[in-house]
Every structure is written in C-alpha cells, then in structure tokens.
Design a protein around this nucleic acid. Structure first.
Lengths: 205, 205, 205, 205
DNA sequence: CATGAATGAGGGTTCATTCAT
DNA sequence: AATGAATGAACCCTCATTCAT
C-alpha cells in the first residue's frame, strides 16, 4: 500500500518536473509562472503544492536527477588512449547537456545568486564531475602532475565543458559541428596540452 | 553649458550603474528592486527614470561599459611568444571579470533567457573577444589551421575564459591561486595544445 | 458544469461592475483606485483581474449593459400621439439615466478624451438612440422632413436628452419636478416644434 | 511699479492658461502632465507654481475667462423677432464653444466629480447663461409662462446648447452644417415650440 | 524671477500561495 | 487527492510638487 503510494507520488513528481523542464526551458525560471508549470504538467496549480513546497522546490528537484545522471563510470574505459577517452567523456557530457539544455541553463542562471542551489551545483559539478575528470587523469598518469597542475587541468576541462556546453549555447554562439565532432576537436586540443604537461612532468620527475 | 550637462548626466548614469552593480552583485537581477538600486545609488527611485528607461535598461547599460572595455589592442603584443601573449590576454580577462564579477554574472544569467541581451552579449563575446583571440592566433601562424580547427581553438579559449572566469566562480568553485597564476597555467595548457596543432598543421602543409 | 461556471462568472462580473459603479459614482474614474473598486465589490484587488483585463476594461464593461438597455422597442407605441410617445420615450431615458447617473457621468466624462470609449458611446448614443428617435419621427410622418431637418430634429432630442439627463445633473443643476414631469414638459416643447415643422413640410410638399 | 508687476503677472497667467488650454484640449486633464503644460507654455514646470497653486488651480483659472466671456448683452437685441434673436444667441454660443471646445470639454468632464468646479460651473451655466436665456424669454413675453413652463424652456435651451455644443462633439457626433446653420435650425425648432407654448399660455390667461 | 533635477507617495498590476469545494 | 478561484504583498513606474542654483 505505502509502496504503491510512494510510486504514485514519485510518478507525480516526475510528471511535474518534466512539465517544469519544458516550461523553464522556454522562458527561464522567473518568467515562468506556476500556472505555466501546471499547464505544461497537465495539473492544476494547487496540485503542485501537494508534491513540492513551492516553485523554488521544483527547481531544486532537478538536481536529484542531475546528481544521478552524473554517475558515469570511469572503470569501463580500459585501455583506451587518453584522447579517445576524453572525446568519449566530453561527447557524453555534451549530449547530456544538449538533452537537458533548458534545465541546465536554468540551474546555472539561478545558482549564480542562490546560495543553496549554488552549493548543490558545486557538489555536482566540482566534486562529482571533478572526480570523474580527476579519475580520468589518474588513469593516464596524472599522479605525476603537481597538485596545482592537476587542479588546473581538471578546472580547465570543467570550464571548457561548462563554458562550451552551457554558456556558449546560452548566449546563442553556434558550436562547430555536432556534439561528437565538438567533443573530438576539444579532446584533441586538450589532450595535446595535457599530454605535453604529463610528459614535461615526467621529465621533471 | 551643454558640455557641463553632458558630464553631469554621464556622472549620474555612472553613479546609478555602480549602485546597480553593487545591488545586482548581491542579490541578482530579479531579487533586486528598483528601490534597492536607488538606495545603493544614493538617489530616489524616481530619479533613476530620468537617466534610464527602466530597470532593464540599467542592466543593458552595463554592456556599453563592457563593450568599451573589450577594446583591447592585439598590435601591442609585438614579438612576445604565444604562451606569454595568451597568458597576458587571459590574465587581463580574468582581472576584468574579477573586477566586474557581479555584473558579468548578472548579464550571463539574464542573457540565458533574454534574446536581446543574448544578442548583445554574443556581439561582445563572440565577435569582439572572438576577434581578439582570432587575432592572437593569426599573429602566431593560425592561418595554417583549417577553419574548423581555428574555430575550435577560438571557441575553446572563449569557453575556457567564460567557464573559468564566470561559471566556476558563479557556482562558488575557487580558482587555484590568483588571476595571474590561473592565467599562466591555463595559457600553458592551451598553448601546448594549440602549438601542437600548429606544428601538425605545418607538417601536413 | 460549464453552465454553472458561466453563471458564476457573470455574477462576479456583475458584482464587480456594481462595486465599480458605486466607487466611480462617488469619486469619478481617475480618483477611484482599483483597491477602492475591490473594497466596494467585497473582493481582493487581484480578483478583479480574473474577470476584467484592467481598470479601464471595467469602465468599458458598463457599455455592454448600456447597449442592452438601449434596445427598446418602438413598435409597441401603436397609435399613441407623438407627444405622448415622446414623453414616454424621454421619461424612460431619464429614469434610466437617473438610475445609472454615476456610470453615465463617468462614461461621458471619460469619453471626452478617449477615442475608443468615444467610439463605443457614439455607437450607443448616435446610432442606437438616434435610430430610436428616428424611428419615432418616421412613425409620425418624419419622412416628409428634409434630411437636414430630420437630422436636426434627431440631434435636438439627443442633445436635449443628454444635456438634460447628464449634464445638468452633472453640474448639479436640479431638474424641475421628477423624471415624468420633466419628460412631459420637454416632450411638449419639442413636439410642438417638430409638429410645426412637419406641418410646414407638408404644406411645402 | 506694482502696476507693471501686476500686468506682467497677468500676462504670465494668460500665457500659462493658453498653453494649458492647448495641452488639455488634446489629451484631457488627467492625461496632461504639468510638464506638458509647461512645454506648451514655453516655461519650466517650476515656473507654473509661481503663478498657480498647482495643476488643479490652472483648471480653475479657466473659469475666470469663461465667466467674463459669458457677459453678453441682451439689451442690444432690440426689436429682432424671437427666432432671429435665438438663432443669434445660439450661434454666438456655438462659436464660443467651438473656439474653446477643448477647455469647455475639460471643464465639463472634470466638473462631474469635482464639487468646487461644479459649483463654479453651475454659477456660470445655470445663473449667468440661465439669466441670459431668461432675459431673452422675458423680452418676448415669457412673463406669461408659468414658473415651471419658464424653467422648462430655459432648461431645454440650456440642455440643448450644452448637449449640442459640448456633448455631441464630445462623443464625436458630427453636427449638420456649420455653427450658424446649426443655430438657425435649432432656433427654428425651439422657437416654434416656445412660441406655441407662449400662445397657449396667452390663451389660457 | 526662472529653472529643471530631484523627489517619493501612490498608482495599476502580477503571481506564488492557500483553502473551500 | 485534486482543483482553481481567491488572495494580497510587493513589484515597477509616473508625475505633481519642491527647492537649490
């Protein structure tokens, strides 16, 4: 009984989040009214408040999804070369960002001035994605980098991924080619730089 | 007479923009009321409307400053090596972004769902900053890159600059070291990648 | 269901219009705030916007009533002499104007400098009431009047009705006696003039 | 000295009233800002307050002119027949109303809900113009009318003049012909009615 | 005397939230 | 559980009025 209720509640929450995603993607957080979200969800405004504490709670609700979606596995990379691994990683990021562009844009925009949201996004992007990239580097000899070099490399990729995948589209700058092509080019550019650093670090050591 | 009036008007506009920058930086655009801006500017709410058409016009007013500030000269680079030129360029960007972090954050956040602002920012970031980076590349033999490679390199730096300077701080991720150090590290990383590409392109040619 | 909803909506609109009528009658359109109307209607300010697009739409809402109320039938006059018919017609106008004095005053006052309202009132007063009076005249041989004479007669009655019923009360000039008595006297005055014209026209013909 | 000052002050007041008349005529009282009046007067907003207590005082200022302009002489009518006298009287009214249509419209509209203005207009229209019409009637044997008949006749003409000259134009209803022609037609219509009443009253007496 | 920049109270309106049905 | 009509606080903006120059 409680099981079925939980499922129904989860379904409703998902229904609302999907409606909100469509609504937010179009007009952003502030220009979207609760009525808009309700209409897009096929529910009445009042119903939303049975599943979320308010409009802002719906926004925060997206992070649960995002946090789950960020759980990608590094282990499966195996013996793939760094550049190919990076390209695959970046392509996955870009595809995901492209699929959830609206939500991501809204989250980024709102997080800029919302400390709670900011903290959650930092957890998501700095810790989890950071760990992914860090794992990637370590997989390829990154342990030879100085802590600062390593952090720089991680941050650069974070910045590139976010800047490339979120901000440039956010201001309407077109990317060259599709997600895969973008990922390959970016991976190529970054790999050579990283590879070079790695070699340099090796020689230094 | 008209001269003095123009100066006074310019001074008032600057006074308001500075007040608005402080107000926006703290709470973002939507949470900041016109009364807040007025209080932070030391003026009455009604006075703002003598110098700007409305709250949104104040936001757009920042872009004039930004567009002017983006007018940096590449010519002065002379015989500096690519990495040093990049580092200097990036450091200037980071310093500027750091000084105007609040405004930049607000502009980015609002541009995500505001077509007019988006167009203006695209002009600023894609065209002007893009030209700067493009000029930098050409200065160092970028004409040997294929159009896609060249665009990728430009976009990467744009993305890195934006992502690094705006987004990571935007979500509260601290940069390693100060602006100069960040710039050096990032320049190093990018230069080697680009340099490698240039060499490869040269060999191909 | 939809039936009940329509009725409830109509009732709310009527409730608001009545509240607005009381508020406007007291202070006029501009001095009446939306809050006043809401208070007089027993509703919250925001509720008004569920039924009208804004303050001005409430004003325009009165015209629907007025346009309906103007749908009086001339056919029912039968063989009544002109003077009696006129007296009855005028008395009906005066009673209606007296009942809705506040609204009429507001509408007239606002229409003076509001083209849309002016157009609607013209439709109401010129076309509909004009047709009524015209029908009255034709019922009594007005076809023998020249177009200019006929228009003059119609305009005179319109002017008298409006001036008498709206303007004199508007400036606080008391009418002699009650509406019926006023109507009889005015009808007498006008009839003899018209009758005389009709006779003259007949002789000319 | 004081003489010259008074003249200058009177000239400034006139200058402002003329500017206000132009401004009000176009947009009405409420839609006209003090800045509009100042611009139309060729003065600065602050200057108006040296000659009038405020915006409303400027409106009231019109009545001084109007009260003076209403001082027309009945004595000069001499032996002119009633219809001609009426036609002349009406024509003069219509011309005056046409010349000052904007002001008159504003005054009428505002008087509807402004007790002080209403009192002044009542003095102007009821007493002075009423006396003019009453004088006209007496000049032609109106003393034989009963008080109610007399008041009806006076009111009818007042209503007709005001309704015709102010309200119909106010709602954009076109008058047939020019002021003179309108006056002749209206005079004809009214005269026959009044004349008939007078004859009837004579026979009754 | 004249100015017009500055003021700030008060307006119309929106929309997140509530609660009787 | 679901509804959506009702709410009212708070927003952006206007403009009559003031006063330092």
């Amino acid at each position: 009984m409680a099981q079925a209720e939980d499922e129904r509640e989860a379904a409703r929450r998902a229904q609302i989040l999907q409606g909100a995603a469509r609504a937010f993607a179009h007009k952003g957080y502030h220009a979207t009214t609760v009525k808009d979200i309700a209409a897009e969800s096929g529910l009445a405004p009042g119903t939303l408040y049975l599943y979320f504490e308010g409009k802002r709670a719906i926004l925060l609700g997206f992070l649960e999804y995002a946090l789950d979606a960020a759980q990608t596995h590094v282990e499966s990379l195996g013996a793939v070369p760094l550049e190919a691994a990076l390209a695959q990683f970046l392509a996955e990021r870009f595809v995901m960002l492209g699929q959830h562009a609206g939500i991501v844009k809204v989250l980024m925009a709102e997080a800029m001035f919302d400390e709670e949201l900011q903290a959650q996004l930092r957890e998501l992007l700095t810790v989890r994605v950071g760990n992914l990239i860090g794992g990637l580097l370590e997989h390829y000899g990154g342990e030879r980098l100085s802590p600062t070099q390593r952090l720089t490399a991680v941050r650069t990729m974070q910045a590139a991924v976010i800047g490339w995948g979120v901000l440039l589209p956010g201001i309407g700058a077109e990317l060259p080619g599709d997600a895969d092509e973008s990922a390959r080019h970016l991976a190529s550019l970054l790999t050579r730089g990283i590879d070079d650093i790695l070699k340099g670090a090796q020689q230094d050591g």
